[in-house]
């Protein structure tokens, strides 16, 4: 497929695009409302708040109440989108999301920003490597690891009427553009970004761009890697993943998340039951976060293109055996 990816900085950051997209949603559907727990500055929704005081609510620093309020708003006919940093939008309020939203059959869109290493200088307390695992465990939830702005903005709108818990984990800045502006996306439908026969790299979120960089390095060595973005970690595009397992015989996953319970876990669970081939996971090796720049953290946790390349070599050895 045609990609915009060059590896350079994005044309526009998610922080610049988010508020206009929410406003589009407001125009599209009078029932859409937006709630934030005092992080309006982070996704730049202050102006939106001023302009639509009856659609945008700053709940204050109280994420658990915000989730309960969102459930109540849904019961009364509204379609709430709520935001906080990813650890506070998931880990801190898990019981509320699980029971007040999921179990109670309410529909709420949760946005967790600065997922994983993208929390950079906020350090370990803000560096959520477990949100995919938590949200995946909620029955019926849709879990999106945002790869670039085009994908995020499209899915924010297209999932408006989706039932149940819909969770987006997203970077706010510096996510390279991958998809063309007019690209369309579907829940549960992965995308093959580059064709390849030797192995498949399934990568989500900010690691999708990293996987594309790794694919180029591998191509220089004469290794043909297929790169796949699952788009939604849950529901996972099972048919596509199994086809890749069958056709390339080995899979490397890459995620900005603990290798336990996230994308790698999801792929391994599926493949081991249906088409057992080696699945090698690039991601956080069961560690906590720390302070650092994105580059430093990628170095620390082994999230660079070279780390995927190394894993690909290992994968090909296993495949030979």
């Amino acid at each position: 497929m045609k990609l915009r990816y060059t590896g350079s900085k994005p044309e526009a950051d998610i922080t610049q695009l988010f508020s206009p997209t929410m406003e589009e949603l407001f125009e599209l559907d009078e029932k859409v409302v937006y709630l934030d727990a005092d992080l309006m500055g982070s996704l730049k929704t202050q102006e939106l708040w001023k302009k639509h005081p009856d659609r945008v609510f700053n709940c204050g620093i109280q994420e658990a109440n915000m989730v309960g309020v969102a459930a109540g708003l849904f019961l009364a006919g509204y379609k709430p989108y709520i935001h906080s940093f990813s650890p506070f939008a998931t880990r801190r309020v898990f019981d509320q999301v699980f029971l007040s939203v999921g179990y109670a059959k309410k529909s709420v869109h949760l946005i967790g920003s600065d997922a994983g290493i993208m929390a950079t200088d906020n350090g370990g307390t803000h560096m959520c490597f477990e949100d995919l695992a938590l949200m995946r465990s909620i029955p019926g939830a849709c879990v999106v690891d945002v790869s670039d702005a085009a994908m995020f903005m499209y899915l924010l709108k297209s999932t408006k009427d989706r039932e149940g818990v819909t969770y987006f984990r997203t970077p706010r800045r510096n996510a390279p553009d991958i998809y063309e502006k007019d690209e369309t996306f579907e829940v549960g439908k992965g995308k093959v970004l580059t064709e390849g026969e030797d192995l498949t790299i399934i990568a989500s979120g900010v690691m999708t761009a990293t996987a594309l960089a790794a694919q180029r390095l591998l191509a220089e060595e004469g290794i043909s890697a297929r790169v796949v973005d699952p788009i939604t970690v849950k529901p996972l595009d099972e048919a596509l993943v199994l086809r890749c397992a069958e056709e390339t015989g080995v899979i490397v996953t890459a995620e900005n998340h603990n290798v336990i319970g996230g994308l790698g876990g999801a792929v391994a669970e599926l493949v081991s039951e249906n088409c057992p081939v080696p699945v090698l996971r690039v991601g956080i090796r069961d560690q906590y976060g720390q302070v650092g720049t994105e580059a430093f953290l990628r170095e620390q946790y082994g999230l660079n293109p070279e780390d995927i390349v190394k894993k690909a070599h290992l994968a090909l050895e296993k495949k030979k055996k």
């Binding site: 658990a64 309960g68 459930a71 109540g72 006919g77 509204y78 019981d95």
Partner: peptide, 25 residues
């Protein structure tokens, strides 16, 4: 039956959400 109960501390935020919606409407 308007809500699920079991885990305490859930009903009041939920009720506040309904009241907030009633205000908007």
């Amino acid at each position: 039956i308007e809500n699920n109960a079991g885990s305490l501390g859930h009903g009041l935020p939920f009720a506040a959400g309904i009241a907030n919606a009633n205000k908007i409407k």
